[in-house]
Design a protein around this nucleic acid. Structure first.
Length: 525
RNA sequence: CCGGGGUUAGCUCAGUUGGUCAGAGCAGAGGACUCAUAAUCCUUUGGUCGCGGGUUCAAGUCCCGCACCCCGGACCA
């Protein structure tokens, strides 16, 4: 048990100041697929997701709604958790909330460590402050109105140049250590183009970072400093440590899972994760995470999703329209992870119909149908393999390593592309061998072709579990692969005939097979 | 304004270190088959690889300039 490899993966925690949309779903689904794949591949996985609930915006939104910040956080966090649980089938191990009690302890602890390292000092934070909004605005967020008064562009309220007492983190001290770290760990940030942006930013020099506020009350108190709450990012990033039991660094959770293997984040917060976070950890003398993968944003038919345009898609709407597994497949197959993607109804339907219903679903249906009708309702006994049989099986066998390599760098798009290419080859093989002809001329040969085809489908289904847990499970059921694990949902999937450890095994001839039912329906508008 | 990336068939995109590189999938057209979810297989129509120069025996593939798009950052406000 101690020898089992571990894998700790996180999503960004969401600021629950609105409704979940398909962009959130993209991040959750991709992290979920990664987590499931690793579980299926034998890793003991810890998968953390959750909500980031502190900060002035929550405070203001709550005030506007006439509720407390805690009440707003409770309500919105529940909405995000519900999407994970009931809409997207996300296999997280813990849904963390930054209002959780243990998170307060972890945040106070990392603060104390950074202070003891000599990296926190008290100074003043200067900026444009709006008394009405009780918040600071940056220079770009303000303008001068007709009367010559400077106002906040967003809210139209008067702002005055204000200096507020604030704790600062000596980020400047970590410029060189960070650059050294990046050079020693070129795969720390991905994709490369995004990581390069981060590196250039650091090379340009780093200012110390204001990390506390006295103008905000909805936050985690700074230890021994009444009136100060932590700047929301100190608190937010620390959630990754809270999730594995920090500050109990000797406890099993921490020693088992830290450092994190992968933080999945959106491109809007790459700086926090690739610069601030490693610097905080260096200061606190905690090991750094191994990788930060920055995914792109989703656009609706090429246009940025926005409430004002009214083109925001709710995950639930898509799932109701296309089905969960088709949505999950589409999100990962259609766009190279790390780049922005554009979706349309036609694009989703195209993937659902051609890749799922036609290439995979129909191949399974036609081969299993023939097995049930012509092989006494059981997995047939193959004869000696012909060149064509060995060729197609060889292609299927390579898929495990191809998928592992692609998943290792979150290249989901490529993993699926290569897998579906083999399905295309298998359809060609099936048509070329024409088992429905062999039925009349050479039943033994027919049995071999059907066996080989079913075996390819088994391998693909094993790999597909991570992406489409429900459908792939049905497919393995249809092949009478003994039930085991839970399609990567928990570490119960680490071993057994449905884990990737069984990839090189084979279907057992003579195993009874039920009359198949279509698993991937075509989309009808 | 500076830096990075992009611009390849109707659509989405692959194209290592320059020499079958003009490709794949989807869509379209024709044919085949009938096991199957009107699915599958075969064949096939599409592109002067953003524009203009240059280097080279040879350039989507290198260099320069230009246009447009995206992403970072700076500056002004």
């Amino acid at each position: 048990m101690a020898e089992q490899p571990t894998y700790y993966i996180t999503t960004a925690i969401t600021y629950p100041n609105g409704e979940p949309h398909i962009g959130h779903a993209y991040e959750y689904v991709s992290a979920d697929v990664m987590a499931r794949f690793k579980r299926l591949d034998g890793y003991q996985v810890r998968f953390l997701t959750g909500t980031d609930e502190h900060g002035s915006k929550m405070e203001q939104t709550a005030a506007g709604l006439g509720v407390t910040a805690q009440q707003l956080a409770d309500r919105n966090a529940a909405a995000f958790k519900r999407v994970d649980d009931e809409v997207l089938n996300i296999s997280y191990d813990r849904f963390i909330r930054t209002t959780d009690a243990d998170h307060y302890r972890a945040s106070a602890a990392i603060w104390t460590r950074m202070r003891e390292a000599g990296d926190i000092y008290l100074d003043t934070y200067a900026g444009w402050y709006s008394v009405r909004d009780e918040r600071f605005f940056t220079q770009e967020e303000t303008e001068v109105d007709a009367s010559g008064q400077r106002i906040a562009t967003e809210t139209g309220t008067e702002v005055t140049w204000t200096e507020e007492e604030s704790y600062f983190f000596r980020l400047s001290k970590y410029q060189q250590p960070l650059l050294d770290f990046y050079r020693a760990n070129p795969d720390f940030g991905g994709p490369r183009s995004r990581f390069n942006e981060v590196i250039r930013f650091v090379e340009a020099g780093l200012d110390d970072l204001s990390i506390s506020r006295t103008s905000v009350s909805w936050g985690i108190p700074v230890p021994e400093s009444p009136g100060h709450v932590m700047y929301v990012w100190v608190d937010a990033l620390t959630n990754y440590l809270t999730g594995v039991g920090f500050p109990d660094t000797d406890a099993e959770d921490f020693t088992t899972y830290w450092p994190a293997d992968l933080h999945i984040i959106g491109k809007d917060i790459s700086r926090f994760h690739c610069i601030f976070w490693p610097a905080f950890l260096m200061s606190a003398k905690v090991e750094l995470p191994k990788r930060v993968m920055i995914h792109g944003f989703l656009h609706n038919a090429g246009e940025k999703m926005s409430k004002s345009v009214g083109n925001v898609v709710a995950p639930e709407d898509w799932v109701n329209t296309y089905g969960l597994d088709a949505v999950r497949f589409f999100l990962l197959r259609e766009f190279p992870y790390g780049q922005d993607g554009s979706y349309t109804h036609d694009a989703v339907v195209g993937r659902k119909n051609s890749d799922l219903a036609n290439n995979l679903g129909n191949l399974a249906q036609r081969s299993l149908s023939m097995i049930v009708k012509n092989c006494e309702g059981a997995i047939p006994q193959p004869g000696e393999l012909a060149q064509a049989d060995r060729a197609i099986l060889a292609q299927a066998e390579e898929l495990l390593e191809i998928n592992r390599a692609a998943y290792q760098v979150q290249d989901f798009h490529r993993a699926l592309e290569r897998t579906w290419y083999v399905l295309g080859e298998t359809n060609a093989y099936f048509a070329d061998q024409a088992p429905w002809q062999l039925k009349k001329t050479d039943a033994a040969r027919m049995a071999t072709v059907l066996y080989v085809t079913a075996e390819v489908i088994r391998k693909v289904a094993l790999l597909a579990q991570a992406v489409m847990p429900e459908s792939a499970t049905k497919l393995l059921d249809a092949l009478s692969v003994p039930a085991a694990g839970d399609a990567g949902a928990t570490n119960a999937s680490n071993t057994g005939p449905r884990s990737l450890a069984a990839f090189d095994e084979q279907l057992v001839p003579g195993t009874p097979v039920e009359k198949p039912k279509p698993i991937f329906p075509r989309h009808e508008d």
